[in-house]
Amino acid sequence: MKISDRTFIISGGASGLGRATAVDLIQHGGYVAVLDMNEELADELIAEVGKDKARFWRCDVAEPGSVKAAVEGALAWAKETGKEVGGVVAAAGVGLPAKILNRDLTPFSLDDFNFVVQINLQGTIDLVRQCLPALASNTPDGPDKEHGIVIMVASSAAFDGQPGQTAYAASKGAITAMTLPMTRDLARYGIRVVTIAPSMFKSRMTDALSDKVKESLFRTMEFPRRPGMPEEFAHTVRMCVENVMLNGTVIRLDGGVRMPSKM
Rank of each mutant, 00 (worst) to 15 (best):
N38L: 07
D112W: 11
W57G: 00
R184N: 14
M229E: 15
F8K: 01
H235W: 10
G12H: 02
T206A: 07
T206P: 05
V150A: 00
D111S: 15
A62M: 11
D211W: 04
I125S: 09
L253F: 03
V49P: 02
S210I: 04
K145G: 11
R129Q: 15
S216L: 13
E63H: 11
R103D: 15
R204Y: 12
I119G: 00
L41R: 09
L17F: 06
P133H: 08
A54P: 02
G255M: 05
L246A: 08
T195Q: 09
A69W: 01
G173M: 07
S203G: 07
L25E: 06
G248Y: 05
L135I: 08
E63P: 07
P230C: 04
D24F: 00
V94Y: 01
L41S: 14
N243L: 03
G248I: 04
G29Q: 05
R219E: 15
P133Y: 02
V67D: 04
H28P: 06
T176I: 13
I9Y: 03
G248M: 08
I26R: 03
D24P: 07
L25D: 04
V117R: 01
K202Q: 10
M152P: 03
G161F: 05
C240F: 07
P107F: 08
P227S: 08
A76R: 11
D112R: 12
Q130F: 02
G190K: 01
G73I: 00
P181E: 12
L25M: 10
V257C: 02
G87S: 08
G82D: 14
Y168V: 01
F108M: 15
R192P: 00
P97N: 12
E63Y: 11
L135C: 03
A177G: 14
E84T: 10
I26M: 03
L45F: 01
P163M: 07
I100G: 13
H147E: 12
P181K: 10
G30Q: 04
R6S: 06
E84G: 09
D111I: 10
T166S: 15
N243R: 05
E80D: 14
V34N: 00
